[in-house]
Nucleic acid binder design. Sequence first.
DNA 1: AATTGGCAGTCTGTCGTAGCGAGTGCCAAG
DNA 2: CTTGGCACTCGCTACGACAGACTGCCAATT
Lengths: 340, 340
Amino acid sequence: MVSERGLDVLRVIVQDYVASREPVGSKSIVERHSFGVSAATIRNDMALLEEEELIAAPHTSSGRIPTDKGYRVFVDQLADLRPLSAAQRTAIEIFLGSSADLDQVLGRTVRLLSQLTHQVALVQYPSLSRSRIRHVELVRLASTRVMTVLITDTGRVEQRLIDVSAELDDSFLGQLGAKLNSTLGGVGLVEGAEKLAKFPEQFPVERASEVARISSTLIEQVLANRQDKLVMAGTANLVRTEEDFSGSVFPVLEAIEEQVTLLRLFGEMHPDQNGFSVSIGKENASFGLGETSVLTTGYSASGGEVSRLGVIGPTRMDYSNNIAAVRAVARYLSRLLGED
Amino acid sequence: MVSERGLDVLRVIVQDYVASREPVGSKSIVERHSFGVSAATIRNDMALLEEEELIAAPHTSSGRIPTDKGYRVFVDQLADLRPLSAAQRTAIEIFLGSSADLDQVLGRTVRLLSQLTHQVALVQYPSLSRSRIRHVELVRLASTRVMTVLITDTGRVEQRLIDVSAELDDSFLGQLGAKLNSTLGGVGLVEGAEKLAKFPEQFPVERASEVARISSTLIEQVLANRQDKLVMAGTANLVRTEEDFSGSVFPVLEAIEEQVTLLRLFGEMHPDQNGFSVSIGKENASFGLGETSVLTTGYSASGGEVSRLGVIGPTRMDYSNNIAAVRAVARYLSRLLGED
DNA sequence: AATTGGCAGTCTGTCGTAGCGAGTGCCAAG
DNA sequence: CTTGGCACTCGCTACGACAGACTGCCAATT
């Protein structure tokens, strides 16, 4: 069994290795930390830790580095979540302070998070499942091309381009738009979709196909519970930490650029009771991200919808700081998007 | 003066160097290409090219590589713009074929472009300067938080969050919204801004401050000639071509992630009569991109507005292929966004 | 005047070897 | 349970030598 001191040793191994990127040996531990015992004693503890697969030696005779399992124990039991520094807090205030476009707010948020953590930051767009339809607009772009815009009371705006077979004149579109709005205004999304399905019946048969085309697009827009968009920032940080990856960073970056992958990853996270989740190393292997750790937490936009934000970086990262930053930014973003 | 054959030599040097990333020597030139002369003759030509600073030797006794100036001459005079392969053409059709959200169209476009060129691809959002106001919507998100949505007839949707000091009830917002729409519908952007400026006067004095807040936000939205957003894809390609950069790719990636930089860069391009522009190496030095080349061209969304798209990558890139791809994608996107 | 073959000189990249330093594992003693 | 000592293993670096590639120049040739 690993002793109390053994866990302390694990902690300093994680901390020192994260700081220096060098395997840490028994001697440097007793030098840098006051354990009050000799290097040989630490060596015995390290032997136990190695048996438990919490640390490993990259080469027969070198210092030890934490394994994925070691990081896991560190995160679950040993990391002291020191709060953010005053400077970091004011950075959050300043960066997210002023009001703006939703796109802008999320854009700033993700850049801020990447700067606070020096990792790749991700923010998922708020979902709109529980919101209500506010307004529908049909915009004719060309003779047979129409854009539909859907606005919900949670502030989500969704637009889509469609081609209609026949030409549509503005006056007909205007009528259709007015009718759509009177039918759908204030209606919930699911109910709205039902009403849309019956919509074409109300029109003369020669118009039915165009109306059907438009309403089916709107149904898509309404039902597409679009948590499927996310913004990213700080991919440069991945290059900075290149040495932490055994091969090239290339496949890692490729996986991260594939939004579908990330959304699946977000979906398969197992948040604790605070909505926070940490996924370490091989736990992400199926996503091609076996050498990275992912820290995410939920945030709530107005309406109580929960989306996620977080960071992704090499397993060798500063968990204490990054967890604190992710939490703080999520808290602030929730407040800003008016969860009230 | 550089002879005719000298320019041919320059061409094969560029081509071979781009293909192999290795300095190319006189011997390998006569081996791989049928010049009908001996290596010594090629050497004489190379000496001239070196005098003109079109090529340079990385080390005293190694083959030559093209200089920025050499690439410039190559692009301007020597590159044969072979059209895209059939496979590439069908890729464009398939990828951009189906109709969708503007965000989605641009997202796909940028990913497509990055796949065709194996470089970082950029697409600037269409501007809305010449368009007309289609619809304005005010959405109350919380008691004192309002979102304004502006829709133009070119299909651009712009949203913004604002805090108003006093509480606003829905009925008042509804009135205000109706009035805004009747005043602004169909009006051009500049004119719209003028009308908005006079708007607060029409309301009772106790409402004036909130109305002023809202209308000034709308003015911002209307006038912000927002070509200031762009999407990017394929940053992983930068890592793949890491060896082409003298130092780390890190600063390059950092510069590319800074959208402001790129927008300035786009702004300072000098397009030829076809709207195309190539900027090579040191020509971009002021943006921190002195080791990259930028290929861009304009594309037009409905309404004749011109925005830009292009790729950015190491100076050692396949100009012929990439120029063709950028052109083809721009042409296709213009068609798709209904420039008609 | 342009081209060619030959030759000396220069530089890079690689390979093998040796030596250094860090660190472990084990053991016997405290 | 802890400690100091000791032999052993490995990775890293420096060094030197060598092979390979290429240029630059010159004198001869067409």
